[in-house]
Write a protein that binds this DNA or RNA. Structure first.
Lengths: 229, 229
DNA sequence: ACCTGAACACCGTTCAAGT
DNA sequence: ACCTGAACACCGTTCAAGT
């Protein structure tokens, strides 16, 4: 599937990188010990030399993705001069989202893990630092963290089409025909009609993940700005 | 584990109810065809008479939980007289949360499904109806839906301790001792200290899921109120 | 109509053994 | 130090068969 580097000896790092690649290419349900081993030209049991068990593998995979996000955000810091807290956090979260879009299975996986990688704490610590430096009380900063949820990692809290980036509700609802839908879902139908009518390109006007993400983000940032006044 | 109703014949409904119960009691990873069958005093293969396969089982389980939420919200409507859109949605989302807290595995499960139960669309249709009746444009209502994410179903978008309702970050971070933590996570440490100091009961003052949920919810509702002016 | 036994493919994991 | 073969327990699923 991928070009195989053949006979370099395995390592935890190489195993985890291959695991992320496998999940990206085939979906998270394809990430089994046996298939991962095959991908690495090795027997399944060899993996147990580098990782305690599958739980450790999944923890390592989450860790790897988080590290990728944190690194991307870190590179931002390097250039990014002095800006106000709002545009700073905004940039960070949007950068995180860029990375996350390459690993659409990651939000659900992270959500199902019991332990959180240490990197995440470091990252959230910086966010608190940014807020407090801008004059937030610790109390409001704390509330802000909870309100952000996993937005700082680039996860939209979208209900619809959580697995794919682009699609949305019409894909699912399209099964029922338009007339029936107009009857049972009058407001959603009217909403879609109004949105499509307004949009320049009717095929693209409905549900743009990037636009929605930024809207939600700004809604939260502006709300916090008001509270901290 | 549960009292068994012995020899009444199975049905899709009974199977799904048992599945929800099993997930509640033992966690979602305990929900296997074989264990579920055992719980129902039946062989695993019998389940296939009522459900096509495990995917259909999981879809049915999600469906069942959603139906429970929608029903609870529906009972609200019965009494609830005329109120403004904000308190109305607020009540609905908080009611949904009450139900959801009894099925802490549900958010992750729903997030991993490809198809969304029809009930969800009906529910979100009502939300759009409420917003539009209050004077929202369809465009803003659309944005609002995305911003809400799964809040209407009572899901907090909490990053920490997604599986349990009460716990939070200190549980995980407590492994490292306080001194080391103060060094690597100065802002979070200071934040915790400030919060605990302010709280009446120091053991309860940190991370109250209910309070945080309501804060986030109000942040969004107030932000939307401003935009719709 | 409703349930089952035997069988198969695939999974995670242990353990003792190879180089 | 790093990898493997054989074996086990558990999983989802098919199929032909029972009542």
């Amino acid at each position: 599937m991928a070009a195989k580097a053949s006979r370099k000896p395995l390592s935890r790092q190489r195993v985890l990188a291959a695991a992320v690649g496998l999940a990206d290419a085939q979906g998270i349900q394809a990430l089994t010990m046996r298939r991962l081993a095959a991908e690495l030209d090795v027997e399944a049991m060899s993996l147990y030399y580098h990782l305690r068990d599958k739980e450790a593998l999944l923890d390592g995979v989450v860790e790897t993705v988080i590290a990728e996000i944190v690194a991307a955000v870190g590179r931002l810091e390097a250039n990014g001069g002095r800006t106000d807290w709002r545009t700073r956090l905004r940039q960070q979260f949007l950068t995180a989202r860029d990375v996350m879009l390459r690993h659409p299975w990651a939000p659900v996986l992270l959500g199902s893990r019991r332990t959180i990688p240490a990197d995440v704490y470091t990252y959230y610590d910086e966010i608190v630092g940014t807020l407090v430096a801008a004059g937030f009380s610790y109390h409001l900063a704390h509330r802000a963290l909870h309100a952000f949820g996993s937005l700082p990692l680039g996860f939209a809290q979208e209900l619809f089409s959580p697995a794919s980036a682009g699609g949305s509700m019409e894909d699912d609802a399209a099964e029922a025909d338009a007339a029936a839908m107009a009857e049972t879902l009058p407001h959603l139908t009217a909403m879609m009609a109004a949105e499509i009518h307004d949009a320049a390109d009717p095929t693209l006007g409905w549900c743009d993940g990037q636009v929605e993400f930024e809207f939600t983000l700004d809604l939260l940032l502006n709300g916090l700005e008001r509270l901290h006044g």
